[in-house]
Design a protein around this nucleic acid. Structure first.
Length: 303
RNA sequence: GGGUAGGUACCAAAGUAGUCAAAUGGACCUGACUGUAAAUCAGGUGGCUUACGCCUCCGGGGGUGCAAGUCCCUCCCUGCCCA
């Protein structure tokens, strides 16, 4: 089946980590002549393969993939860049008359791309941040209120990270702050969610985690270090990257690192679930057959 | 056997007479998330109740006292030190 120029559609695959999104994306891509746009905030980085469960060349089975390895782990990658590159990839795929399959676990990225958030690119200003970090959240809030009353209205007042970023943005793009407006893609989108029994999911996460370790996850971290990343930066990647950085620095034991990783991996899947739960467009499927059926139906009608 | 420190809610750990259903951290649950998102943040976590409130609770038992997690006696248990 082929999509045609005037029949542009998008399939989105979401789900928890280790739920089987990747496998499904390949199946759908093969069945419906698609190409994959990854939506994963850590797989965008080069040199982070094992710990991000990045799809391998072999697994790709010649299906083109986008938004993988597009950034240096030294530099911060943001949603704004994701959206920009994602849009480009989308057009690329449409140009080839193929079906774009957006697949990943970073709900925020998917939202930015598909539902559209217009945002100017603002690079992190480390000096600024360092200064702001000294302030209390009350002070930060007041500051933001002065700079951008509108943004201050609906920001989480207790969240220093968001406060700082908001200030940073309004300071560098000067006034007036562009109202962030939703700018959804003008194409029909099918949202598929890969569902897995929680018990099974937990087991699979664990299994995959130990596989990473066996595949040399520790070496991956060491390589990142050699490439010049600070421990602090590696810790920012979170979860097992943080836990094992701590271990390699001698701050916690290996066992503690394992335990902490597993714990945080699970907490992460719960956060993902919370995020996806509220998106009522997502149709939850239990297997690829179901997904194929739904996709077929979705793709068969003309726009 | 002697000495000593301790036994507090799922865990760790404050509290040493009233303002304690009991600080704080973790874990867990629920949730927010339109600019670091694998990040960050919020709320909840003895029982019943919409709520006011009521009941149960700080190793066991017994006291003192208007009032006890907090004081006294005793028993049990744990750590450490000396035998």
């Amino acid at each position: 089946m082929k999509t045609t120029k005037d029949n542009k559609k998008i399939v989105v695959i979401v789900g928890a980590t280790a739920s089987g999104k990747t496998g499904l994306s390949i199946k759908l891509a093969k069945a419906f002549d698609g190409e994959v746009i990854s939506a994963d905030s850590r797989q965008v980085y080069k040199q982070m393969d094992i710990g991000t469960a990045k799809i391998t060349k072999k697994e790709m089975a010649d299906i083109p993939h986008y938004l993988l390895d597009v950034a240096s782990p030294k530099k911060k990658f943001t949603v704004a860049q994701y959206r920009k590159l994602g849009l480009k990839a989308l057009n690329n795929i449409f140009k080839k008359d193929k079906l774009p399959i957006v697949c990943g676990g970073t709900g925020f990225y998917i939202q930015a791309l598909v539902d559209g958030i217009v945002m100017p690119e603002v690079k992190p200003d480390w000096k600024l941040r360092k200064g702001l970090e000294q302030k209390t959240i009350g002070e930060l809030y007041l500051m933001l209120k002065k700079l951008d009353p509108k943004r201050a209205e609906n920001i989480d007042k207790n969240n220093p990270r968001r406060l700082i970023r908001a200030i940073e943005i309004s300071l560098t793009i000067k006034k007036p702050i562009p109202a962030i407006k939703a700018n959804p893609l003008p194409y029909p989108v099918l949202f598929l969610g890969v569902q897995k029994d929680p018990e099974k999911l937990k087991k699979d996460i664990e299994k995959r985690f130990y596989l990473w370790l066996k595949q040399g996850f520790l070496n991956e971290i060491k390589k990142l270090r050699k490439a010049g990343l600070s421990w602090k930066r590696i810790e920012e990647f979170g979860m097992h990257y943080r836990a094992f950085s701590l271990y390699l620095q001698g701050e916690i034991t290996y066992e503690e690192a394992e335990e902490q990783s597993l714990k945080e991996l699970w907490q992460y899947t719960k956060r993902q679930a919370t995020w996806f739960k509220r998106d009522k467009r997502i149709i939850w499927v239990k297997n690829s057959a179901e997904a194929k059926k739904l996709s077929k139906k979705f793709l068969s009608y003309e726009k």
